[in-house]
């Protein structure tokens, strides 16, 4: 299968803290890749590197072969105008959408308006279009409302479109975040703990939704704490511990890997 996203020796240091340590892996087009690891393993940091929120300290991230993230140029290279990593909004426009671990909706906007924001990179009306309300701008506005409505319906939120995001119950807020990310029409959808705080039924719905999205051709990268969920939906799993990749493979392989049991499952079983 074709590689959609490649990480090569990606490292991130925050001062003295080594959050991500020389991680390599590939996300293949059309698969669901689970990213797991104990708390503080560096999963969310890795997510932030992939989606352009931080530049890596070392290494490189490529999307469809094009470098999107690499260390910021320093010294002479910077003065010479060498290009730095793509900013988050450009990466979104290139087809990597994300959700956040703690929900970050635009709380005082309605559900529909939240999703409309996701259509921003796919539309172009600017100041003049808005002021003159040109036919092209009005057509585009209609298109935005239509698409946003479709995305809401896709995650089963069609009935709540005029509800304020802040007033939606927690489970629906999670879905709204998903709808908003889908509106950017991503090739790769990165979900940061999408099942956190969901009850069993909501988690089942999420699994159906994730599988449905994959069937439509989407590639998914999934950080998840809920091991059962990851094992159920992932094609392959990458395990992080203390910022390092300690294992990768199918759910069956990972489950049997001694390093993983040691680092993660072992600790989990003790706890439970």
């Amino acid at each position: 299968m074709e590689a959609l996203l490649e990480l090569r020796g990606v490292t991130k240091r925050f001062g003295g803290l080594l959050a991500v340590d020389a991680v390599d892996f590939t996300v293949r087009a059309g698969e669901i890749l689970g990213l797991i690891g104990p708390n503080g393993a560096g999963k969310t940091t890795l997510f932030n590197l992939i989606t352009g929120f931080h530049p890596p300290t070392e290494g490189e991230i490529r999307l469809r072969g094009e470098a999107i993230a690499f260390p910021p140029p320093a010294g002479v290279a910077r003065l010479a105008g060498r290009r730095s990593s793509l900013p988050a909004h450009r990466i979104t426009a290139l087809g990597v959408a994300r959700t956040f671990q703690t929900i970050r909706l635009f709380k005082n906007l309605t559900a529909l308006e939240n999703v409309m924001s996701g259509l921003h990179p796919r539309t172009r009306a600017g100041i003049w279009g808005a002021l003159a309300r040109t036919p092209a701008q009005r057509r585009e506005e209609r298109w935005i409302v239509e698409r946003a409505g479709e995305c809401l319906a896709r995650v089963g939120l069609g009935a709540s479109r005029d509800e304020l995001a802040a007033n939606l119950p927690y489970g629906l807020q999670r879905r709204l975040e998903l709808a908003r990310a889908l509106a950017t029409r991503p090739a790769l959808l990165a979900l940061d703990e999408p099942a956190a705080g969901l009850n069993e039924r909501e988690t089942d719905d999420l699994v159906d939704l994730v599988r449905g999205l994959r069937a439509e051709g989407l590639t998914l990268l999934l950080i998840e704490h809920d091991m059962r969920l990851v094992m159920r939906v992932s094609d392959r799993i990458v395990v992080l511990d203390h910022g390092r990749k300690i294992a990768a493979g199918t759910p069956q392989e990972v489950r049997r890997d001694p390093a993983v049991i040691e680092a993660y499952l072992g600790a989990e079983e003790e706890g439970g």
Binding site: A88, R98, E113
Partner: peptide
């Protein structure tokens, strides 16, 4: 409005 509410989330939406 999006930038005012949450700049990072807005960036994640491609703004």
């Amino acid at each position: 409005l999006c930038v005012r509410e949450d700049e990072e989330a807005a960036a994640a939406m491609g703004i």
